[in-house]
Write a protein that binds this DNA or RNA. Structure first.
Lengths: 335, 335
DNA sequence: TAGCTTGCCTTTAACGGTAAAGGATGCTAT
DNA sequence: ATAGCATCCTTTACCGTTAAAGGCAAGCTA
């Protein structure tokens, strides 16, 4: 291994001198500097980042904890974060919690022990770990939570999506396409899903379109949930001609239910999802959806952390809201 | 920050004593051990992994370099590696090279500077970086290459897929399903693709089925490549009734070409792909494909590294071959 | 010509931990 | 008594780097 010690030894200078050359300090003479640089090149010296981290108390590494690597959703966030981290010469420690709060805890501890400079938490987990998270602050470790608007006790930056706007965009679009009996397949009882339902109701109101309680079907985030909910909605009179499902898998389930009932998408019923799962446009009937850039979420999360690591760290914690946008496809085409 | 120094100070013992307790050494008295552990719990001490790495010369961290985070293929490898790494308390530094050899080089240097214990390279890049890779060995950094059978100069463990078997399985299946004019949409001129073509030819021979040069269409790995190649194949007489495309995107392109030509899958032409891209079964006609477990690839890669890090490291470098298997879906159903 | 600057390099200490060798104490065996 | 030994803890050194303070000679000032 080539260390600064070896370079210093071979040149007969002190280790500090070598260090100064490599850090571009001004108080090293022209000749010495050149000799050191030549030796550095000759031996192919590479600094030891571990030792560096120890003295500088900065590892130039970020950590990210996601619930599931198999879900493209989170991977895209990782990709966004990776790009900003890498651009700044930061490494990225990746942890997957497998939706398990206990493992999430372990992962956070691992990141903390490794002295990462910041942690991005893209967790879907219930709280429980807020004590841990709070301590990060005191340790000078930046924390950004993605899509978590709860944990109010944890003071940190956040990147969130505007779920109400998601519901509003989807519903308005259905109305614009001529739907008048617009139903909603609600998600599970979590904030995300509730806000989307709020947006649905708001849009109906704004457009002066009638809404009825029975047009909101309790569903879930899975395909089967969407199928069941839609099956119930299809039995209603007057006939539902537009559905906004709380997410894409549910919307896909809804479409299947519609077909199984012998009806057509979009001719008889128009369908909008949310979340834009990968390949959503390879479906039998490509699905209109409301989506937002997850890569951007990751990027913004990284930027928030870097702001906090820099010299002029903001004193307040910020909330970055990623605007959703409508992706129109076949499932809402009007004749 | 709570350090061993602080614990030692508050208890009036030496730092070494604390260290020994935490490392379960035998030469610490019962009473002292208890006092130390109590203080550790009281102050919520967590060891500083950076300092630990510096003395132990082990970071308990693996690095992985992949070409593209947006491709589920590589993400699954990452997931496999993450699971074994995490199970052993290892961290995982994730790097994406964006298919750029220069960036790949940078990423490898980053990992090396950070003193990772091992690197998994799931690269699609042309060589060029073999000098760098070779030096890793000397530094005691384990290296595993995934799906790279070239770089023969680089001595390291490898995890590879049996591409010839991929071609053989796909082609045999088409023949079993009754196809007699079996075409192949070849990939780009890289080893992978060539071996798959070899397997295609071998299977034809083994089954005594006729093959003709014009039934091998030069294509590529993208959907558009498959579309173009298939368009050409469709003009041949006698009519092609089965196609093995070098990978799934090309197969999807081929299916689109078939439909655009007014023909049906699988009734008129059966199609097999390779690689099993995520959501492959959500297609209009679910695609039969030959696939292998990428998660397993990642896992095996991790195991190879851990073997090498352990006390009884194998003296030879190993090649682990992941066997492919056929995933039968709609696109090759026979009446 | 003593004293001050300036330029250039070195010494020392520190980051937080581990390993190896070195005491001090009390007990056992002769 | 006393060497020998086990037990338990401390001292010292080191991992590879940076920061702060220190030293020294040459040149300049008064």
């Amino acid at each position: 291994m080539t260390t600064m010690k070896r370079i210093a030894g071979e040149l007969g200078v002190s280790i500090t001198t070598v260090s100064k050359v490599l850090n571009n300090r001004e108080d090293i003479g022209h000749a010495t500097r050149a000799r050191v640089l030549a030796k550095v090149a000759e031996l192919g010296y590479q600094p030891n980042a571990v030792a560096r981290s120890l003295t500088l108390r900065r590892t130039h590494t970020l950590g990210i904890v996601i619930p599931d690597l198999m879900h493209s959703f989170f991977v895209e966030i990782v990709a966004g974060l990776e790009s900003v981290a890498s651009a700044r010469g930061f490494g990225l420690l990746l942890c997957s919690s497998n939706e398990d709060p206990a493992k999430e805890r372990d992962e956070i501890e691992l990141l903390r022990q490794r002295q990462v400079d910041g942690i991005v938490l893209a967790s879907a987990n219930a709280s429980g770990n807020s004590d841990l998270l709070q301590r990060l602050n005191a340790l000078g470790i930046g924390l950004v939570m993605i899509d978590r608007d709860d944990h109010p006790a944890v003071r940190c930056d956040r990147v969130i999506t505007d779920d109400e706007e998601v519901g509003r965009l989807a519903t308005s679009h259905l109305i614009d396409q001529g739907c008048r009996i617009v139903a909603h397949i609600a998600g599970p009882p979590i904030v995300h899903a509730k806000r989307r339902a709020d947006g649905y109701r708001a849009a109906l109101k704004e457009h002066g379109v009638r809404g009825r309680a029975e047009w909101i079907a309790r569903g879930g985030f899975k395909e089967a949930d969407g199928y069941r909910a839609m099956t119930r909605l299809l039995s209603l009179k007057p006939r539902v001609d537009g559905v906004f499902a709380a997410n894409d898998p549910a919307a896909i389930g809804a479409m299947k239910a519609i077909w199984d009932a012998g009806r057509r998408v979009p001719d008889d019923v128009k369908v909008v999802g949310a979340g834009d799962i990968a390949m959503g446009d390879l479906l039998r009937v490509p699905l209109t959806t409301v989506s937002w850039s997850r890569e951007n979420q990751g990027k913004r999360a990284g930027e928030l952390i870097f702001d906090r690591l820099g010299p002029d760290a903001p004193d307040k914690f910020r909330r970055v809201i990623i605007p959703p946008e409508l992706v129109v496809r076949e499932s809402t085409r009007s004749r």
